[in-house]
Amino acid sequence: MTFTIEDLNNLHLDVLREIGNIGSGNAASALAKMINKRIDMDVPIVQILAFEDVAAILGGEEMVVAGIYFEVEGDITGNIMFLLDIASSKILTSILMGREDGSEELDEMDRSALQEVGNILSGSYISSLSALTGLKIKLSVPSLCIDMAGAILSVPAIQFSQTSDKIVLIETLLKEGSNQVKGNFFLIPDSKSFDKLLQSLGVYS
């Protein structure tokens, strides 16, 4: 049988939530190590949404956001995307580079830092997933785009739309002191890999 996102039940969601949890935990400790500061994390929220509702969560289709996109290769194929609002992006790069330039704009330095931190965070999710499933999963180099949320989301939405009209979103809140960084992580396996992924997690029904 072919599995679609609509068929996901509570058990599957729990598994995805757990992956989100472990992945975010690893991501937080990787980040903490990098900046040598304590990073706290809230339990990630895992949601399945219709793609037209995803932009609303981010503040609307025209809200400017940063998306970091990767191709996934290995035993499963597809893409992952890490998405941050501009305020969170700025906080993250400021923490990372230990500077406060007071500007809302992201310069070249911010962009390259963002790409790198996206790389580390996404890598953490993927290695958790890999460890839990025993599947070999490799990430491509990151590609960064800063633009309207709707336009950036069209990329995973199109990909999802070939199997379903829903999207799986893992929302993570990272905290460093009074700084809060909200990251949205989209896991987008292609349909064959989606089956394989659930099978490896032992939740295939």
Partner: peptide, 17 residues
């Protein structure tokens, strides 16, 4: 969607669509 004069149609944040 389809409209007649004087209404306006809009779509927000077109990317690859």
């Amino acid at each position: 969607q389809v409209v007649e004069e004087p209404h306006i149609l809009t779509t927000l944040g077109l990317g690859s669509c």
